[in-house]
Amino acid sequence: MSSSSWLLLSLVAVTAAQSTIEEQAKTFLDKFNHEAEDLFYQSSLASWNYNTNITEENVQNMNNAGDKWSAFLKEQSTLAQMYPLQEIQNLTVKLQLQALQQNGSSVLSEDKSKRLNTILNTMSTIYSTGKVCNPDNPQECLLLEPGLNEIMANSLDYNERLWAWESWRSEVGKQLRPLYEEYVVLKNEMARANHYEDYGDYWRGDYEVNGVDGYDYSRGQLIEDVEHTFEEIKPLYEHLHAYVRAKLMNAYPSYISPIGCLPAHLLGDMWGRFWTNLYSLTVPFGQKPNIDVTDAMVDQAWDAQRIFKEAEKFFVSVGLPNMTQGFWENSMLTDPGNVQKAVCHPTAWDLGKGDFRILMCTKVTMDDFLTAHHEMGHIQYDMAYAAQPFLLRNGANEGFHEAVGEIMSLSAATPKHLKSIGLLSPDFQEDNETEINFLLKQALTIVGTLPFTYMLEKWRWMVFKGEIPKDQWMKKWWEMKREIVGVVEPVPHDETYCDPASLFHVSNDYSF
């Protein structure tokens, strides 16, 4: 037999072997998808029940369902290793196997995995149920939502704001400190077992692309791009910072340095994350009609249902689908009040099986009107990829998912749209002054938050990498806050605090 014939037969044999492996992989994935749908849905439903009704029974049910899901994933991840990716030609099959071969938290021992889940659930519970009591009246206690958040959004009393700011960190942050220390250790162990340098590197892996249509993007490039983007917006932020400082000097004349940092408790919310609520103090042309339409919403008797129905109309107007019937029947759109304790931070849920929901303790404000559009943007994205195989139902990356939500809320905030839905009067006219007011309001929300987020994530990356010793977490946190964000702590904090974890995203294990 000629050498060319042998070569042809060899190629046929290799192709047949690849085809056999690929067919086996497809069969394996079909079985996995069928089983995963049910187990993931049960786990998601148990998590939803806990988040909307925080009880010991629900946390136990959530843990049990989560353990079943984790055990299943660990088993299936091991089985998926049997299919070598280099022998799979079908890109859809390869991407699913690649996702499943990534072990995630299931790489930890059973004891450590359970401990990590306990830590995460405990931190979430402390954050959502933590109360601050009035020292003069111990029976008068406030949760973060709505009590403390209400103070931080609306109060102009310097000392009341300081009390709310400090009490939240003292009551909740200190409880979270030992848990967060354990969390860092276990998450790093999980990341390294998955061949990442640390948990920050694991997060950045979400943005990594290897040879898809000839395109590559590394975790290191992400760090470079983040640094570059921050340097680009820094001059604009510094101008905004100086303008806000001048306006705060008028409101709090004896508390603000004309050349120094801004006190952290005066920036519009509990964390200084969004400066939106400073608009009334900083509006350049106050004689113009108010483009913050909160009062109009209240006057027109809007409620949470109306807010979300208007958001749905907005999405339908640009060619996107209505929310499902189940969305309206199962979402929690208002604070249950004293009936039950719930996690009030707005979140969009894709539970699986076409079950999409939003959890939000909606208030009738323009801020929540825009947040509703943001969260519904997440749901629209979830619905758009719902037909994909189970392992591919995700956003391109976390940042893109947020961008989908944010672009919709930005569009909904324009005076033209607000006028079209009757929240600005029919005779409202846009001119240079109203446009400047609008742009300032947008800058308070968007530009003001960028250094906050950059600095927070930089601190977390450094902590996970071990570049900040545990006994210097708070020292470095406030050094970076002053240097990068231009914000100063109103009272000193020692290493018993854990100020970063006083933010939902940190205590609940979300990256930005």
Score class of each variant (00 low, 15 high):
84 P>I: 13
41 Y>S: 15
82 M>D: 15
72 F>Y: 00
27 T>D: 00
69 W>K: 00
92 T>H: 00
67 D>F: 03
65 A>L: 04
46 A>G: 10
28 F>N: 14
21 I>L: 12
96 Q>R: 12
29 L>Y: 05
75 E>L: 01
51 N>G: 10
71 A>R: 01
89 Q>S: 01
64 N>S: 08
73 L>Y: 10
68 K>T: 10
39 L>V: 01
23 E>N: 03
61 N>P: 08
33 N>R: 14
62 M>G: 13
64 N>D: 10
39 L>G: 02
96 Q>P: 01
23 E>T: 01
71 A>L: 02
91 L>R: 01
71 A>Y: 03
20 T>G: 10
89 Q>W: 09
93 V>N: 12
98 Q>D: 01
22 E>G: 09
65 A>E: 12
33 N>V: 11
56 E>F: 03
39 L>S: 07
50 Y>D: 13
67 D>R: 03
26 K>H: 10
63 N>M: 03
24 Q>V: 14
83 Y>F: 13
79 L>F: 01
37 E>Q: 12
64 N>I: 07
63 N>F: 06
50 Y>M: 10
89 Q>I: 00
93 V>Q: 13
63 N>S: 12
22 E>V: 11
37 E>C: 12
89 Q>K: 07
37 E>Y: 13
96 Q>C: 10
74 K>C: 02
51 N>D: 10
26 K>E: 04
27 T>K: 01
57 E>M: 04
72 F>Q: 10
38 D>Y: 14
71 A>T: 08
91 L>F: 03
22 E>C: 10
91 L>D: 05
23 E>W: 01
63 N>W: 09
46 A>K: 10
93 V>L: 07
64 N>M: 05
49 N>R: 05
60 Q>G: 10
92 T>C: 00
23 E>I: 03
56 E>R: 02
45 L>S: 13
74 K>N: 08
74 K>Q: 08
68 K>C: 11
30 D>H: 13
39 L>Y: 03
24 Q>T: 00
93 V>H: 12
29 L>S: 13
39 L>H: 03
64 N>W: 07
62 M>K: 09
49 N>D: 04
73 L>N: 09
41 Y>L: 13
28 F>T: 15
24 Q>S: 14
31 K>T: 15
95 L>C: 04
60 Q>T: 13
71 A>F: 02
26 K>G: 10
62 M>S: 10
60 Q>V: 05
93 V>A: 13
72 F>H: 00
63 N>T: 12
35 E>F: 13
57 E>Y: 04
19 S>A: 09
91 L>C: 01
31 K>S: 15
35 E>G: 08
45 L>N: 15
49 N>T: 01
65 A>G: 09
64 N>E: 10
90 N>T: 00
46 A>R: 13
68 K>V: 11
67 D>N: 06
41 Y>G: 15
89 Q>G: 05
23 E>R: 03
98 Q>T: 01
96 Q>I: 10
62 M>R: 09
67 D>S: 03
41 Y>W: 15
60 Q>L: 07
29 L>V: 14
84 P>M: 11
98 Q>L: 06
30 D>G: 14
39 L>N: 02
50 Y>A: 04
75 E>F: 00
27 T>Y: 00
22 E>W: 12
79 L>D: 14
95 L>N: 05
41 Y>N: 14
48 W>Q: 10
73 L>P: 13
84 P>V: 13
28 F>P: 11
74 K>W: 06
26 K>I: 00
102 Q>G: 05
41 Y>R: 00
30 D>K: 14
51 N>I: 11
26 K>A: 01
67 D>P: 12
31 K>F: 03
75 E>W: 00
40 F>K: 00
23 E>S: 01
68 K>L: 11
93 V>C: 09
76 Q>C: 01
64 N>T: 10
73 L>R: 05
23 E>D: 03
79 L>Y: 00
41 Y>T: 15
75 E>G: 00
62 M>H: 11
31 K>D: 15
60 Q>Y: 05
56 E>A: 06
73 L>S: 09
23 E>F: 00
73 L>V: 06
27 T>M: 00
41 Y>E: 15
59 V>L: 06
67 D>L: 02
24 Q>Y: 15
83 Y>C: 02
31 K>R: 14
41 Y>D: 15
39 L>K: 00
39 L>A: 04
79 L>I: 00
20 T>L: 11
45 L>G: 12
33 N>L: 13
28 F>V: 15
39 L>R: 00
90 N>Q: 00
24 Q>C: 15
102 Q>L: 03
33 N>P: 15
68 K>S: 11
40 F>I: 12
24 Q>I: 15
31 K>I: 15
34 H>T: 08
34 H>A: 00
19 S>K: 11
95 L>M: 02
33 N>I: 13
48 W>V: 09
40 F>A: 02
33 N>G: 11
34 H>Q: 12
98 Q>M: 02
56 E>V: 02
82 M>V: 15
35 E>R: 14
27 T>V: 10
19 S>Q: 12
34 H>M: 12
74 K>I: 04
38 D>I: 14
98 Q>V: 01
72 F>T: 11
56 E>T: 05
25 A>N: 14
64 N>R: 01
67 D>E: 04
38 D>E: 11
72 F>K: 02
23 E>C: 04
93 V>K: 13
